[in-house]
Every structure is written in C-alpha cells, then in structure tokens.
C-alpha cells in the first residue's frame, strides 16, 4: 500500500527541529485534519494525516507518532479496529490514543477506555479540551 501525496506531513521538514510533538490524526475528512494542523502549529505540534484506520495503522508503524488521534466511523478499518490493532502490537501499544468522534455513546466510551484509549472526545471538540489531553503526553 502506498501513501497518497497529501497523507505525508503537512508541515515542512524545517519545522521538525522545533516540534514539541508529532501527532497522527486519523479521520476520513482531510479538511478536518488540516484545520487542526493549522491551529496546533501555534503550539508547535506537527500533524500527520491518515484517511482511514488501515492507513493509520501503517503510518503509526512507520512514523512512530507521539500521540494518535482517531475518529471511529471510517471506511476500511473503523476506529475500533485501529485501536484494537494498536493495542495488540507490542511496538505501538504504548502510544497514547485519543478518540475524537461524533459517534461514541456511553457504552462505546467505556469499551474504548477499557481497550486503553486515554480519552474519548465528542466532535466538535474545543481546542482547549484537546490540549488538556495532549499536554498530558507532550511538553507544550
């Protein structure tokens, strides 16, 4: 499988030195990740974007991000499958994973947390709420 051109880092390579965190964002809407990328850049967070769970898993393996943020309902692997696969892979199991989705009901939230997801946030999420979670794992 190959990565589409716009799935690679949104930020230029020059930003790398300044980056305080590399976040893999998995969502089937490219505009959504682009919006977050613009805002998080002000906190020196660098966003990588994957369009579905399977690509997200592949990029997690190759890029070893500091944090993974994922949606639930996506084509190919949905978020659930991604979370499950991440938790089963010894190399990736340690990467904190946050779910940002409009689909998580209370039961689903519990189940995800039991699988090791560190936070489940409702879409649309305020940047502050997201930063609260990210600060736990990144030095901003």
């Amino acid at each position: 499988m190959s990565i589409p051109a716009d799935a690679v880092m949104i930020e230029g390579a020059a930003e790398k030195a300044k980056s305080t965190g590399r976040v893999l964002w998995v969502d089937d809407d490219p505009n959504l990740a682009a919006g977050f990328a613009r805002r998080l850049k002000r906190y020196n967070i660098q966003i990588m974007h994957a369009f579905d769970g399977m690509q997200g898993y592949w990029m997690a393996l190759n890029q070893k991000p500091d944090v993974i943020v994922t949606d639930l309902k996506m084509p190919k692997w949905p978020g659930n499958d991604l979370v499950e696969c991440l938790s089963l892979n010894r190399e990736l199991a340690g990467i904190p994973t946050i779910v940002v989705s409009g689909h998580a009901g209370a039961a689903e939230k519990k189940r995800l947390e039991a699988m090791g997801v560190v936070a489940v946030l409702e879409k649309p999420v305020g940047l502050e709420d997201l930063l609260v979670e990210l600060r736990k794992f990144l030095s901003l």
């Binding site: 809407d29 505009n31 682009a34 919006g35 613009r38 309902k73 879409k123 940047l127």
Partner: peptide, 17 residues
C-alpha cells in the same frame, strides 16, 4: 449529525486560525 459535526469542527478551527 455526524455529517454536520465534521464541517462544523473545521470551519470553527479555520475561523480561529
């Protein structure tokens, strides 16, 4: 709701940006 949430999210983020 989901279809609307997603654009709402990024339109908000972009406007802040």
């Amino acid at each position: 709701a989901h279809e609307i949430n997603t654009p709402t999210q990024y339109v908000g983020d972009n406007t802040r940006f």
